[in-house]
Amino acid sequence: MLDFFKGIFTFWDSKVIIMILEGIRDTLYMTLGSTIVGYLLGLPLGIVLYVTSAKGLRPNPFIYRTGDFICNIIRSIPFLILLILLIPFTRLIVGKSYGSTATIVPLVICAAPYIARVVEASLNEVDTGVIEAAKAMGASNLQIIFKVLLVEAKTSLFTGFTITTGLLLGYSAMSGTVGGGGLGDIAVRYGYYRWKTDIMIVTVVLLIVIFQIIQNLGTYASKRIDHRKH
């Protein structure tokens, strides 16, 4: 075992190490970038779905059904196929279809409807009695959204955020198969095409470690901000 690791470090030159470090950087960039941009689209979309649903603050069957339909369509396409389908669109937006910035485009398109659903589910968990109380106090719909719903649902929203980040970490690695960059890309190029098992193992371990860190940080933080249980 020790020999194996010694072997890795003597065998690996600094080029490989730099490549792996860059892989970590690119993976984090894609994961966090797509999560953040995904939320910029998905959070408002989730709020719209909640507000316009039959039991929402301002029911609107047309808007709800349209949003619902789009979300379901995109979510039913497997990510790898979406990745390929979106190549022309990606090229249009970032100018090329490979590399980590380009990968963020399909990741966001894949994540936004997913995030919208997660947000809608979190908001649905808020007790309708509390919303009723806010209405009785004279709160407007906007006040209810920003001061009641998003605040009362914050723990659940945060848990959703953590899960989404983990999911996008996995998808970003998957995009390595079509030249997406990051650790997934390294694993595919070295492990699959060149049979460098040691490099593949290291990248997989790194992916696992990053995933664990995200998940544990998320769980810890959502417990810290929750005031419901003491």
Binding site: A133, A136, T155, D226, H227
Partner: peptide
């Protein structure tokens, strides 16, 4: 509605 207070069976306080 600000002139009309209301209380409920389930209290409906903001838990957070």
């Amino acid at each position: 509605r600000r002139e009309i207070g209301m209380i409920f069976q389930n209290f409906n306080l903001l838990e957070q």
